[in-house]
Design a protein around this nucleic acid. Structure first.
Lengths: 136, 136
DNA sequence: TATAACTGTAACAAAATATATTACAATATA
DNA sequence: TATATTGTAATATATTTTGTTACAGTTATA
């Protein structure tokens, strides 16, 4: 996964939650996160695809939370942005002539998915509302 | 963290375990993993620093497991190679003038360390001996 | 209906990171 | 002494991430 998609998405969601359903332009979001607005819009596309946010084109447009913050759990957000596994890719090709190399990727994959499930379970204990409530 | 340090380290440890205390040169390890021997040696330096392996210079040299496979748990291995957090860095600088931006990194850090602990706890349920026993 | 403020999206550029390569001194073995 | 190996630095290459520019399409509103 791109190394900062999760924090960016969570930052966006927190800002949208703060806006209480109001429509927020990507320029503003980008200003708070301090990244390029195009990246924000790309991230929003993904959040929209997963039903977390909606957006409105044209003047006065922007994006907004599409469901209640209490109904968005952080595990789901994580899953929506996760590309590869947390522990590293298995895309390298170990030597098939080596008895260990030949089998390791399958064992690594099993290990990864189990560990990642534990991570997701932990994140899922918290909703966006919980997270946002920590801000003063 | 470099995206593949964990799988590389685990691959090395598995091979050394297979060698049953014998000394294995980095060239051989690199051949099984299918990466450059210099990378293997760097990874071994780290494993050695953490007491998992030992190495021997000179002709007939190489590396070997420094403790019993049953005494190496995968959570420790993960911790030894982990650079940044699993969920992404907090190294970007959100806008300090934004009330959300100003506080988000501290909340993200708390979230990360909690989630990462869950991941480590999961990995720690398994030792190198357990992992290696899955190979036929 | 013209203008302005947006999104959506592509194409490209730049920066950062990861990986590979080369080289060689130091060390140990036979 | 010749050989195999580690340790390590320096550098190159590849890959990934992030940023930038550009612009067509959409909507609000003066």
């Amino acid at each position: 996964m791109s190394n900062s998609r999760f924090p960016i998405s969570l930052h966006i969601l927190t800002l949208l939650n703060e806006a209480k359903g109001g429509v927020v332009p990507s320029e503003y979001l980008a200003g708070s996160i301090n990244i390029n607005p195009v990246l924000v819009r790309k991230e929003i596309m993904n959040l929209r695809k997963h039903g977390f946010v909606g957006s409105k084109e044209g003047k006065g447009g922007g994006s907004f939370l599409a469901k209640s913050a209490a109904d968005i759990n952080l595990g789901e957000v994580y899953k929506s942005v996760r590309g590869s596994n947390v522990l590293g890719q298995s895309k390298n090709e170990p030597n098939p002539k080596c008895p260990i190399g030949r089998q390791i990727n399958q064992h690594l994959d099993a290990l990864y998915s189990d560990a990642e499930n534990a991570l997701i379970a932990n994140l899922s204990k918290q909703t966006l509302a919980d997270f946002a409530s920590k801000f003063e």
